[in-house]
Design a protein around this nucleic acid. Structure first.
Lengths: 153, 153
DNA sequence: CTAATTTTGTTTCACATGTAACAATTGAAT
DNA sequence: ATTCAATTGTTACATGTGAAACAAAATTAG
């Protein structure tokens, strides 16, 4: 058998492709939640979610926690500020730094979306079945654990 | 306990986020392969891979197999044609349709990249460990199975 | 103290993307 | 037969993106 002719690739079975495809399928569905319910883009949603989870943070810290490029964070913060969902406060000791906090309205929206997010995740678990969901969770955790240390972002 | 205050979301543990993050980590690494070795974009790589796997296809069929938007396919085909990695032939019965095939050079590049792709996947399996890799594979398969029927693309 | 370097966040630029409009062709309706 | 609808692929437009340049401030080196 001529090995050269046998080297081909079944895209549907290729894990990086499957991962990409699965992400698109889930991501698209989830996006409708923060888009339809709050008119947010993904960077905006992530910024909201990170501030909702951690309280007061700087833009850099938001980027670190949410794995977002600093330009994305910058733009999302701008947009959320215009909506009055967050407030900036310049640090007194280091005037380059701005501390960001959700306003009451921002926090309210966050809670609403966080509920929907939980419901979405539960729904996903139902659709996939517990075993599959846990398998997925384990696999994704392993990737984060083994590859996530590349600073890269 | 006031339930309202307890509704928050741990982003790092939220599966849609983990999926997105894992995809980025893997995707970025894999992209260096087709970028560095062949100067291809992702749509171009996918088009090459789909034609390499299936032989002759129309643009629409490539989109269906690789889950790519038709404009992506259109541009990728254009680019690969300029490189002389594929050839177009207008269908005689239906002159809207073009049949696309890899040239010899295109096929050679495909084989090289397919080898590297396999090696990449093997490396990923090594890094994650067999158990984690199979868990991931199972989870991703379940998503495709349960959500992949949404035509959506 | 002064100059060079680093850090934080914004802006500019070039490019990739999807939606929608489009031209060309084919098929369906009547 | 002739119009109307559907399909295939391309193009135009508006938007989102990251790399790189940037301004402002802080830190380090000497």
């Amino acid at each position: 058998m001529d090995q050269t002719d046998e080297i081909a690739l079944a895209l549907e079975a290729f894990v990086p492709y499957k991962l990409n495809r699965a992400n698109e399928l889930v991501s698209r569905r989830f996006a409708t939640i923060y888009k339809d319910h709050a008119g947010l883009t993904r960077p905006e949603w992530r910024t909201l979610a990170t501030l909702g989870q951690y309280g007061t943070l700087t833009a850099t810290a938001i980027g670190a926690h949410s794995s977002m490029h600093k330009t994305k964070v910058s733009r999302a913060v701008q947009s959320l500020e215009e909506r009055k969902w967050l407030k900036r406060t310049t640090d007194e000791n280091d005037r380059r730094v701005e501390h960001l906090v959700l306003t009451r309205e921002g926090a309210r929206s966050y809670k609403k979306l966080a509920e929907l997010a939980h419901a979405f995740e539960t729904g996903l678990k139902d659709i996939l079945g517990n075993e599959n969901f846990e398998a997925l969770n384990r696999g994704l955790g392993a990737i984060e654990e083994r590859l996530g240390t590349d600073i890269f972002l």
